[in-house]
Design a protein around this nucleic acid. Structure first.
Lengths: 362, 362
DNA sequence: TTGAAAGCGCTAACAA
DNA sequence: TTGTTAGCGCTTTCAA
């Protein structure tokens, strides 16, 4: 046990300076590794620091440099594998440059998001990464931009904000996926998403800008359009989970005179709920209903049958947001472009020819 | 757009004081909500703050209060669902008390963990939660204790450290699980864990103290002992993944004259690897090999057959660490006890009677 | 209830 | 290369 009594007062630069018999300024320079210091002094200071077990107070340091070497990250749900994997990309990238990360979970609530952003600003993070819960309420994000602090968006672009966003391109892949479904014989295709219902205007020329979530839907619409078929509006369920639970939605989709023959889950959390519901209903895939999901979770290919998915490079997307942010923090000007990543359709066994014999599933 | 020109200098207490025509001290008191302030002054200050869009500098605040309203969390791998779920428990609990969280990922590397802990100390977090990567190298954790800053352990206790730890009790459940396997007819049971090989001494009376990871193994040993059978040491693989990849381990377990008839995965990440390997080997569960895993991930019961698991209340465990930490920070003395949570065996369909006909699986 | 002034621990001008 | 002296934005004595 080398340390002295517990709860001792923190050792400061002044203490080290005294011990090394130099001025506080010189000690600070040697310790902070800046300015001009002779080897002689440096070694004396470092030695003194070692014996005193000096540790810098990063708060004080941040206060006058104006930089905290800390990034803020605001996500909707860290429990969602999408975010936890992206978070690893962010965290790894940040750490490689000596930055730490404050993570705030909003529970996909815009109010909480605004609060989170404010807290981060108050804590003087050097920059932040936000996965915005809404494309409508963005006042707080504009505030960040106006504060002059670097901001990068994750998985969603907000037109007019003028900040970079990293995400996967989903439109063509969504188109391909739904076309695959249509080609297999499906016309009654259900789609379940947490996309805010209010966020989507049915005209594709909306100024909400494209983002992977709305692109999933846009691609679907385009696929139906190309096939010369009307899109089954009654089977498209947005804002899933609030308040109507997913399992109820699934039941509804499979009820009535013309039930869905295929269901598309817009992320892996929804997928899990859908699959549980299907299991409870004793429905089999793809005989009773075809299924596909977004995000290629490791378990997707372990299912029987393995699940057809749209995969995207989540870790890389996260890393890209951090890189863009760090670049800005380190002086490069922001280029408010979307950093686009490819997505791809991985066909496995969960999509089959629809069972056309008349039946009541639910 | 109500904000003024971008990159304006931050508004400080002094500015607000001037605007409200009171002293800096009074303004600070009103803003910081401490000390004695007349209603008159308070409202003038608050109004001034509003028009100037004043925002406190939390760094400055933390610097002289010594408190940062920030918790540090150090985990091995945030991508691991165990940690991301525990993190939610921590994050929710912290937020409810107005605390934020700095998350550091160590990649299960002790050096990185020591570094993380030091950084957190330097950033003056009010306390920290660590899921220690090792029970042997704990110097850095002792340093935290000596620094006087509150510390709580997640999922692992370190004897002699004298700090609380929250985790699930695994011994009895592990015993029950392996007994179940033995009762079903298995004697050749493989066990794959990331538990550090060096961390485990075969005597249960070791002073490493019990923790959910070593308890899994201890329970297994006890089950064999009770059954009057020798434990198959050759099938127990610790430190899995470094360097030998899991899939190689699985292949080895299933090779040779007396292959394993059942495999136990000590966490869900290992389980995924094992299942992929089994799939590639074209082996079916439970006909060719029985399987069970620790941690009840949502996908476990969706598999065909659904997987037998040992479940534990991960979110609650995370929340408990945060509660214990906050209690200490808020003044209550540390009670260096383990906060124990129940775990339970959930029997599903992945364990069957071993296939005894002579065969070569791999 | 108020205000003046002294720090918190550090960095940054400015001289020497 | 060194030391002196101001601050950073806030909280906190201490007197009034």
């Amino acid at each position: 046990m080398s340390a002295s009594s517990p709860r001792r007062r923190d050792v400061t630069v002044a203490d080290v300076a005294r011990e090394a018999k130099v001025s506080k300024a010189q000690a600070a320079r040697a310790l902070g590794d800046y300015g001009a210091v002779s080897d002689e002094v440096r070694s004396r200071v470092l030695a003194a620091a070692a014996t005193l077990e000096y540790r810098p107070n990063e708060l004080a340091r941040s206060m006058n440099t104006g930089r905290s070497k800390t990034l803020g990250v605001v996500v909707g749900d860290i429990e969602n594998p999408f975010f936890s994997l992206a978070m690893r990309g962010i965290s790894d990238t940040a750490k490689a440059q000596g930055f730490d990360v404050i993570l705030i979970n909003t529970g996909e609530d815009v109010i909480a998001e605004a609060e989170a952003v404010r807290v981060l600003l108050d804590k003087r993070v050097d920059g932040m990464i936000v996965a915005p819960a809404s494309q409508l309420s963005t006042r707080h994000l504009h505030d960040v931009v106006e504060s002059g602090r670097p901001l990068v968006l994750l998985d969603r672009q907000i037109p007019g904000l003028g900040v970079p966003a990293a995400m996967a391109k989903m439109d063509d892949t969504a188109y391909e996926a739904v076309t695959h479904l249509i080609d297999t014989g499906h016309t009654r295709i259900g789609y379940i998403s947490t996309l805010e219902a209010g966020n989507w205007s049915s005209s594709p020329e909306t100024d909400l800008g494209s983002n992977p979530v709305s692109e999933r839907l846009a691609g679907m619409r385009r696929a139906f359009h190309t096939a010369g078929m009307p899109i089954p509006e009654d089977l498209i369920r947005l804002s899933a989970g609030k308040p109507q639970p997913i399992h109820e939605i699934v039941q509804e989709l499979l009820s009535g005179p013309s039930p869905a023959t295929a269901i598309v889950a817009s992320d892996s959390l929804i997928a899990l709920d859908v699959l549980h519901t299907l299991q409870n209903l004793n429905l089999s895939i793809p005989d009773d209903v075809s299924f596909m999901m977004y995000d290629d979770m490791p378990w997707a290919q372990l299912m029987r049958p393995p699940i057809t998915v749209v995969a995207q490079p989540v870790y890389d997307i996260g890393a890209a947001t951090a890189e863009a942010l760090l670049a800005q923090i380190l002086g490069q000007p922001a280029k408010p472009e979307s950093l686009l990543f490819p997505s791809k359709l991985v066909k496995r066994g969960s999509i089959g020819v629809p069972n056309t014999r008349l039946r009541t599933l639910v």
